[in-house]
Amino acid sequence: MKPLIAVLLGDPAGIGPELIARLVAKPENRARADLLIVGDKRELDKGMEIAQQRFDYRLVDNVDAAARDTDMPSLIDFRLPDDAPYERAVSTERGGRYSLEAFKQALVMTRANRTQAMLFAPVNKTSLHMAGMETNDEMEWFARQLDFSGAFCEFNVLDELWTSRVTSHIALKDVSAKLTQERVVGAVQLIHDGLKRAGVDKPRIAVCGFNPHNGDNGAFGREEIDVIAPAVEHACAQGYDAQGPFPADTIFVRARDQKVFDGVVTMYHDQGQIAMKLMGFWRGVTVHGGLPVPITTPAHGTAFDIHGQGRADVGATQKAFDIAVRMAQDRLS
């Protein structure tokens, strides 16, 4: 039996509907999973027009009516109550509200395992905040909606290489104070479990240092000596295949070229993001790791500057779909 994936169009002001049209139009994608699109029918049709891709779909009222074991996707025609046109290529409260309400529907279905995973096209954080999202990002918002109080982390994925981070959306001046052995070990555990759910049998994990040249034996800071190295030892003692700390300016070259690691744990947001996006911006994926349901999305944004031009690259959305399918199959098993 194929898994059922909830697919969201993202912010209507951006390239999301075009990306989903390109993704779903591929017969091989429809053959791998049953697809339940949650979004405004007019936006999906517009996305197909922009992408110059067409496919048939079945209109349904709820998840129970979704087509199963067929190559035809289903669509829940979700619209805001005011049903007004969306502004394009700009952040708006309505675009954010549309995204949040679609999230809510998909989370309910996926939490109940009616859909086994959730894939969403890019959303706009400014729009989300304009619509009332009080958390720093959608991942924290997901955790609240799911009443989840455990550890979670944003994974960034490029092809077969995954990254997690000990800190995320905080100022650089605050990072050092947030680095603890417990948090580093927790990041190792999270990425290990995420990789396992995505089909990696024995994840190999590298851990970055924090300071230039890995601190140079304490000359440029002691975080490596006092926090990170002991945390790696603790992770290994718990049975995780973790190594480090490694200098952040070389570990990604080694991971990419020698392929000796499946995941890299970084200490702060841009330490991993810059490397991953330079290596493959249009292939990068975000996985919302640690949450009780699989959620993936392309790592790039809404690309307002190319909305409606028919040249959005579906590469990262395809990769996000691939991971969502693997994680959904894991839930089925």
Rank of each mutant, 00 (worst) to 15 (best):
D249P: 05
E28P: 11
L179G: 09
V232R: 03
S333P: 12
V90N: 12
N214P: 02
A303H: 05
V7C: 13
A151R: 10
T302G: 07
G301K: 03
D305V: 02
V232M: 09
R204P: 05
N29L: 04
M279Y: 13
D61L: 11
V232P: 03
M1P: 11
T297K: 08
F142K: 10
T110A: 12
F148V: 03
L119H: 07
R94I: 08
A312T: 02
G301N: 01
H192V: 00
N156F: 11
V188W: 04
K202H: 13
S164P: 05
I205V: 05
Q105T: 07
M276I: 14
Q116S: 11
N214W: 04
K319V: 04
K125S: 13
N214D: 03
P230H: 09
I20H: 03
K202G: 04
T126R: 15
R97H: 05
M109F: 14
F261Y: 12
E134L: 11
M72I: 15
V157Q: 02
P122K: 03
L35K: 06
R58D: 14
V314W: 05
N214T: 01
F210R: 02
E43R: 14
G194K: 00
D77L: 00
V287M: 09
F55P: 05
F304A: 04
L190A: 01
I170V: 13
H192S: 07
A320K: 04
E28N: 14
Q309G: 09
I76T: 09
F142S: 06
L195H: 08
R54K: 15
P294F: 11
G239D: 00
E28V: 10
D249I: 02
Y268P: 07
D201K: 15
R256S: 01
A177R: 12
I295R: 11
V185Y: 09
Q258E: 15
F304S: 04
G132N: 10
G16D: 00
R254P: 10
A206L: 04
I225V: 10
R22S: 03
D69A: 12
Y57C: 09
L80S: 07
M109N: 09
M279C: 02
L9R: 04
D147E: 15
D71M: 15
R144F: 12
E43D: 11
L35H: 07
M139S: 04
L119A: 05
V185H: 07
R88M: 04
K173T: 10
F210Q: 01
K178V: 00
L332G: 14
A324F: 15
V293C: 11
A206R: 08
V188Y: 02
F55C: 03
F142A: 06
A235C: 03
P247T: 03
P3V: 05
I295N: 11
G150P: 02
L119W: 11
I228E: 00
A67H: 06
V314Y: 06
V175N: 02
M267A: 14
T135M: 06
S333G: 14
R165P: 09
D174P: 09
H300C: 01
A229D: 06
L119D: 04
T250K: 12
E134A: 14
D330M: 10
K202W: 07
L161I: 04
K178W: 02
V166S: 02
G215C: 02
L179S: 12
P245Q: 00
L19N: 06
R88E: 01
A33I: 08
L190C: 00
I170A: 05
R331Y: 09
A255K: 06
I5L: 15
D82S: 12
D137P: 10
A171H: 12
K196Y: 13
